[in-house]
């Protein structure tokens, strides 16, 4: 996993609730057996006017001028402002990969769907939960402020708006530690291989039917 670095990033607003992972990355792109390259198909059905398939050249496609990420003022955005229950539906980690591959480092929303939330941490994409009213305020500000940059400091757990107004977010200490250090979680778990083996031996005695 990539180490998470503090970031000052341009924010882009996606003003819909319940954005599902089918919308974040439509299923035809899930046929890829690679882990990268999903950014060009992020929000594909909203972002382009023509129908996208795997392997198409993005430069030759028709962008939808009405879609927020296609507006010049949001080019290069690194922070996505979203509404409640972002990332609901399918467990596809491809959704988190696509957001990261596009260039997003942080997603801010009043709430996230559980699996998406988890998947994001595993790849070093930071999902931040802020209160409904704070997110609402940010939506208002980003709409009226061209070049709305937010500063995210993971160590201090703060998000700072251009006005200088700061707010604190909660994060699980285990996730924070892993993000700050860019840890390989599998390696971390394998340090406890003996414990896993001991657990397994006990289970094998008590519930042998689990091991056939």
């Amino acid at each position: 996993m990539k180490k998470f670095r503090n970031c000052k990033g341009l924010a882009a607003p996606l003003d819909r609730a319940n954005v599902d992972t089918d919308a974040i990355i439509p299923k035809q792109f899930l046929k890829s057996i690679n882990r990268s390259g999903f950014g060009q198909n992020l929000f594909d059905e909203w972002r382009y006017l023509d129908h996208g398939e795997l392997g198409m050249d993005a430069a030759k496609r028709k962008p939808n001028p009405d879609f927020v990420l296609n507006q010049a003022r949001y080019r290069g955005a690194q922070i996505l402002l979203a509404r409640a229950n972002f990332g609901c539906g399918s467990s596809r980690e491809h959704a988190a990969w696509a957001l990261q591959d596009y260039g997003f480092q942080v997603i801010i929303a009043p709430s996230f769907a559980d699996i998406f939330f988890n998947n994001s941490f595993k790849i070093g994409l930071l999902p931040i939960v802020l209160s409904e009213s704070t997110v609402d305020r940010m939506f208002r500000e980003v709409n009226v402020t061209e070049g709305y940059y937010l500063t995210v400091n993971l160590k201090d757990q703060t998000v700072t708006a251009p006005s200088g107004k700061s707010c604190v977010f909660e994060i699980d200490p285990f996730c924070k530690y892993n993000l700050l250090n860019g840890l390989d979680e599998i390696g971390l778990t394998l340090q406890h291989a003996e414990k896993i083996k001991a657990f397994e031996d006990k289970q094998r005695l008590e519930q042998p039917w689990l091991f056939t």
Binding site: S91, R92, E93, A96, N119, K122, E185, I186, T189, A193
Partner: peptide, 13 residues
């Protein structure tokens, strides 16, 4: 349900 990173984690550990 789990994501692909977790699929790898469960396979390995």
């Amino acid at each position: 349900g789990i994501g692909t990173s977790e699929v790898e984690h469960v396979l390995a550990t």
